[in-house]
Design a protein around this nucleic acid. Structure first.
Lengths: 213, 213
DNA sequence: ATAGTAATCGGAACGCTGTTCCGCTTGCAA
DNA sequence: TTGCAAGCGGAACAGCGTTCCGATTACTAT
């Protein structure tokens, strides 16, 4: 009886972080799952049933939950994939077009990305801790991408300086969400108010308990 | 056989909008339902199961759905009830305290109202048409209430003029975001800061456009 | 090539939702 | 007191996310 039983092929396992290479079919199912989820989310929103995604991907339910233990993990994965794609598109667009055109095109690309996010806003505001890290990732990837385009446009003398990439991203996001057009003015005014509250002469803030009870 | 069969006691029916007076027990169950829902929502958020509310109210599931055909109807009813209570509190507070103190106290009252709204933000951003009318009602009731307090404080020479009640409400809402329930102290402190910012002596807020661009 | 093994798969099954349905109960007007 | 429609309760239904486990399959050592 050959007794080496499963010699634990961990040769390349302990090297990097990944415990072991993924089986070929698993890899295939995973990508087709992500693709299907992307399409379904775009069509029916992020509240679409997991079964619908599994069926579209030609995959069993168990497979879905093997790769994405929670429904939210699938949503997060799709979101990150699309954010990455959008961020990566910036450098390619910058290579193909002049600064002004590149900026305009990427913004269009960004809007398209937002257009497929039906229902995600609700999930983000739901308080579910599974999504709390998403906005940070969002900024981390998209802000530098836009900043390079913006800097190039400024350097070319086409766009005025002093525009923050993050502000621009938020502005576009708000424009895509609803009709709250006066958003930036409102925010600036209220923050100015808050800063005024820090000035000398006000006492309530430092001892809030005094004005209550 | 007396054949008047249900003479349709609609005497007082066609007069007003209501088709007929509600039966006494129905009225009782309805209010106890609203009360229970308020408590459960405050404790577990608006995603709490309907069964839990029914049980707490000592009522069957059928009764819940008789009064509130959809789960969202119950949420909306509770929300409106609390908004009404908060708005009505303004006049009472204004009667008891001087303008500055009244303004501060009502703002804290408003913060407390917000603190029991765990999960509502998610529902509002979910895109569900059942909630689209809520923000409008929100402003319709709260804005005038705050405006009277604000006007009184301005008339008393304590608060600078030019502050919009709607802006303040939104600002406080944003300050309270994510602070639900466990630590309202932070929210109270920040709102106290904001209220201090309303006082005379600072100029940034009144002409925000100058400090931009 | 082949066989053995572990990784992977598929989908039935479970528990928990919102909502519907219907036989029973009850307030109220006659 | 009586008749009946308004009201009630909770079993039942449909659909969801998630778990579980026997069957399948890609890899590896021989």
């Amino acid at each position: 009886m050959k007794k080496r039983i499963t010699v634990r092929t961990d040769e390349q396992a302990a090297e990097d972080g990944k415990p072991r290479r993924m089986r070929a079919d698993a890899q295939r199912k995973m990508t087709s799952l992500l693709q299907a989820a992307m399409e379904v989310f775009a069509k029916s929103g992020v509240d679409a049933p997991v079964r619908e995604i599994a069926e579209r991907a030609g995959v069993g339910l168990g497979t879905v939950y093997r790769h994405f233990p929670q429904r939210s993990d699938l949503i997060v994965a799709v979101f990150q994939t699309q954010v990455d794609a959008c961020a990566d598109a910036a450098s390619e667009i910058a290579r193909k077009y002049e600064p002004a055109e590149a900026l305009a095109r990427w913004m269009q690309r960004y809007v398209d990305f937002f257009a497929t996010k039906r229902g995600l806003a609700g999930a983000l505001h739901s308080g579910d801790p599974a999504y709390t890290a998403l906005p940070a990732y969002f900024n981390k990837r998209l802000q530098p991408a836009l900043k390079t385009l913006l800097d190039a446009a400024v350097a070319a003398g086409i766009v005025r300086p002093g525009i923050e990439a993050g502000d621009l991203l938020r502005a576009v996001g708000n424009l895509c969400r609803g009709v709250h057009g006066e958003e930036p003015v409102y925010a600036r005014r209220m923050v100015a108010l808050l800063v005024d509250g820090l000035r000398y002469g006000a006492s309530t803030a430092s001892k809030p308990a005094d004005s209550i009870h």
